[in-house]
Amino acid sequence: MSEQTVIEARNLDLTFQTNDGSVQALRDVNLTISKGEFVSFIGPSGCGKTTFLRVVAALENPTGGSIVVNGMSPEEARKQRAYGYVFQAAGLYPWRTIAGNIQLPLEIMGFSRAERKARAEQVLDLVDLKGFGGKYPWQLSGGMQQRASIARALSFDADILLMDEPFGALDEIVRDHLNEQLLALWARTNKTIGFVTHSIPEAVYLSTKIVVMSPRPGRITDIIESPLPRERPLEIRETQEFLNIAHRVREGLRAGHEPDV
């Protein structure tokens, strides 16, 4: 695998102007993400992990520093359909079938009808929802809906997948299952994934790189390159190596945590 840089942030700053004055959401963030990496962002609320993802997606504009996605600005990268974004809620349109929802970005991007149909079939298979294309969202469980939303993000075959706490609203059993599936999906497609989470085990289990962040102002306190192999059964979470990484993440979180909470 080539060590091609996909996302590069240099001295990134972002300050929001609110009614109560300015809030520094990101301060001096430096991060390089290579092609095919699975990068998790972990930290307490307000640490800027979601904000960073939104900057990559050109949903927020940084107020300082630079960020490059696929060698261009995030705005240009978006126009090139560089990434698919998965939100915490599935956000499927209730008036469209699952296949219809997956075809939504394809319609907007002007794919032909035949191409849309073929791609919807293909990504439904990828997230293990074969045969559910004709169902409406309310007919599916929460976990299946979130898988459908991942399929939607995959449908136009962007190289980067940005996921903002995609499994945050699901129970732990479903979550484990989806984590396992996500790893399989990542192995098959070799996409670069940015993944925001609150959960230490989730971050350690999934990632090749864990970015630990802390709030007020949002900044990176530690970047951990995971020594775990890419092939990961769920049982890997009981190994000493796994626990060591989890411990380091916890230390990083504690270091950045102010005692006033």
Partner: peptide
């Protein structure tokens, strides 16, 4: 979130109207 999602697809205002707001 729905509006952000459409932005990530680089959808035009008209597309947002016909595909999301109107339905």
């Amino acid at each position: 979130m729905q509006l952000d999602l459409l932005r990530t697809y680089n959808a035009s205002q008209a597309q947002g109207f016909w595909k999301l707001r109107l339905p």
